[in-house]
Amino acid sequence: MKKILLFSILSGSSLAINAATDFDNAMLKAGIVDEQYQVVNDRELNEVLRGVTNKVAHMFPSKIDAYTTILSVNVSRFGIYANYQLDEVETKKDAEYVLYNFGLAQDYKNYLCSSEFANSETFKKLNAKFNVNFLNSESSVIYTLKIPMSSCR
């Protein structure tokens, strides 16, 4: 059953508006959420999300473009936490400049909001967020972009 859940979660995105996602349907079928997508089995939900994190861990670090590397992703009931490194961005001021003056913050939001998790009724009920940390070359977090999944439309 867990393999079916992981496959359902990791397979293609369903971007249906105002409808349950494949993730939600898998959680409902497994008895992890009820018909209103409220979590009724915390332990099993945590296990499934830990499995998702473990399943994608081998993909990181991964170069996204010439200047961006995604270092890690963690999926939990509280949201999705990702660590990125932008080359030659060493301070909070540098990160803010790059993110907001070049529109990268909006690009990140658009990308994350197009994911299955962002459209999940289960994650919306959990009030989950995307937390994107930007790290400098010394692996220190210099800026965090927080995007509530409820702000995704």
Score class of each variant (00 low, 15 high):
M1A: 13
K3I: 12
L6W: 03
S8Y: 01
I9V: 11
G12T: 08
D24E: 11
L28H: 04
K29H: 00
G31K: 01
G31N: 06
I32K: 01
V33P: 08
D34R: 11
E35V: 09
Q36C: 05
Y37P: 07
Y37F: 14
Q38D: 12
V39K: 03
V39A: 05
V40T: 14
D42A: 06
R43C: 00
N46M: 07
E47H: 04
V48L: 04
V48M: 01
T53F: 02
N54I: 08
V56F: 00
H58V: 05
M59Q: 12
P61F: 05
I64L: 07
D65I: 02
D65R: 03
A66I: 09
A66R: 10
Y67M: 09
L71P: 02
L71N: 15
S72T: 08
V75F: 06
V75E: 05
S76C: 09
R77I: 11
F78G: 15
G79E: 08
I80C: 09
I80M: 10
I80K: 12
Y81P: 03
E88M: 06
V89G: 00
V89E: 01
V89I: 08
E90D: 05
E90P: 02
E90H: 01
K92M: 10
A95W: 02
E96F: 13
Y97Q: 08
Y97T: 09
Y97I: 01
L104E: 13
L104W: 06
Q106S: 15
Q106A: 15
Y111W: 06
Y111N: 11
S114Y: 05
F117P: 12
A118T: 05
N119E: 15
S120R: 10
E121P: 11
T122G: 09
F123D: 14
F123I: 14
K125F: 11
L126D: 07
A128E: 09
N131H: 08
F134C: 01
F134E: 03
E138Q: 15
V141P: 13
V141W: 06
I142Q: 04
Y143N: 03
T144G: 10
L145M: 04
K146T: 14
P148C: 11
P148H: 10
P148Q: 10
S151A: 14
R153D: 15
R153K: 15
